[in-house]
Simulated assay, not measured.
Amino acid sequence: MAHAILLGDSIFDNRGYVPEGHEVAMQLRSHLGDAHEVTLGARDGSVLADMPAQFREVASLRDASTNQAPTHLVISCGGNDVLGLVGAMQSPVASVLEAAEMLAAWQADFRRGYRAMLQQADACGLRLVCADAGDYSAVSPIEPSSDGGRKIAASIAELLLADETDVVRTVVFGAKALRPGPAG
């Protein structure tokens, strides 16, 4: 039995952006069937600084009767951190150099926060799934639409249902640039 925990932001906690029953967690449950469990730990509006609390919640999900921990962590976070900078990016600056220095500082802060989050994660699902305009909600262009949620849920279900029951490993799916590496 797979037990997936969805952590992060409104990519998974998208109930405010789609019709009832079309949330990513609900669609994932329909892909997996009754033999598997899905727990929504993600919260709309979360930023990287909120992730330690979400990881602490994961620790409380160990099944007391079987001492079984969740089998998969799926994480989508960081977008709200970037959105928080939109207003700051419109601030007046005295020079191009000042703007470049501000961008460099924001990038360094984001990198530190994201790396800290990755260090807390056992597994992370960061791969391009929603590549079409129709994959995003008309209510909010950064949230998945019903179609986008279906794609996300199908991708997670495919990962969870893969026949690798005897393999224990940590895998990070995503762009090479997003993986932790030497500080720079």
Rank of each mutant, 00 (worst) to 15 (best):
84 G>M: 01
64 A>I: 05
122 D>E: 15
122 D>Q: 14
97 L>Q: 15
120 Q>T: 01
126 L>I: 11
78 G>K: 04
69 A>H: 08
87 G>E: 05
78 G>S: 05
115 R>M: 08
81 D>Q: 13
90 Q>C: 14
70 P>I: 02
103 L>A: 04
90 Q>Y: 09
100 A>T: 05
121 A>C: 06
96 V>W: 09
116 A>S: 12
103 L>V: 05
113 G>Q: 04
72 H>K: 01
111 R>D: 11
78 G>L: 04
91 S>Q: 15
84 G>C: 09
65 S>W: 13
89 M>W: 02
102 M>K: 14
68 Q>W: 14
111 R>M: 02
78 G>V: 11
72 H>Y: 03
106 W>E: 10
98 E>F: 09
68 Q>Y: 13
120 Q>V: 00
113 G>V: 07
99 A>R: 08
69 A>E: 12
73 L>C: 01
91 S>M: 15
106 W>C: 12
91 S>R: 12
83 L>P: 10
67 N>G: 13
97 L>S: 14
65 S>F: 02
109 D>F: 00
123 A>D: 10
106 W>G: 06
71 T>L: 07
76 S>D: 03
108 A>M: 01
92 P>E: 15
82 V>Y: 01
76 S>K: 08
88 A>Q: 11
93 V>N: 12
65 S>Q: 14
116 A>G: 11
75 I>R: 06
118 L>T: 03
90 Q>G: 15
107 Q>R: 11
98 E>V: 12
70 P>W: 07
64 A>Q: 07
83 L>S: 03
103 L>K: 10
67 N>L: 13
69 A>Y: 12
71 T>I: 05
88 A>D: 15
111 R>A: 11
122 D>W: 12
121 A>Y: 14
69 A>R: 11
65 S>C: 09
108 A>N: 00
85 L>W: 03
121 A>L: 05
75 I>P: 09
105 A>T: 15
69 A>N: 00
69 A>V: 07
119 Q>M: 10
108 A>T: 02
123 A>R: 03
100 A>W: 04
120 Q>Y: 06
87 G>Q: 05
120 Q>P: 07
79 G>I: 11
104 A>S: 04
90 Q>D: 13
70 P>F: 01
62 R>Q: 05
120 Q>N: 12
93 V>H: 09
88 A>V: 02
121 A>N: 07
105 A>C: 14
76 S>P: 09
70 P>C: 12
72 H>G: 12
117 M>E: 04
65 S>M: 09
80 N>G: 00
95 S>A: 10
119 Q>R: 11
63 D>G: 04
88 A>F: 14
65 S>D: 00
83 L>K: 02
114 Y>F: 04
111 R>K: 10
110 F>E: 01
118 L>S: 09
103 L>F: 01
103 L>T: 05
95 S>T: 12
116 A>D: 13
106 W>H: 08
104 A>R: 00
66 T>R: 04
122 D>G: 01
117 M>R: 09
125 G>F: 14
121 A>T: 08
100 A>G: 02
112 R>W: 09
126 L>T: 01
91 S>V: 15
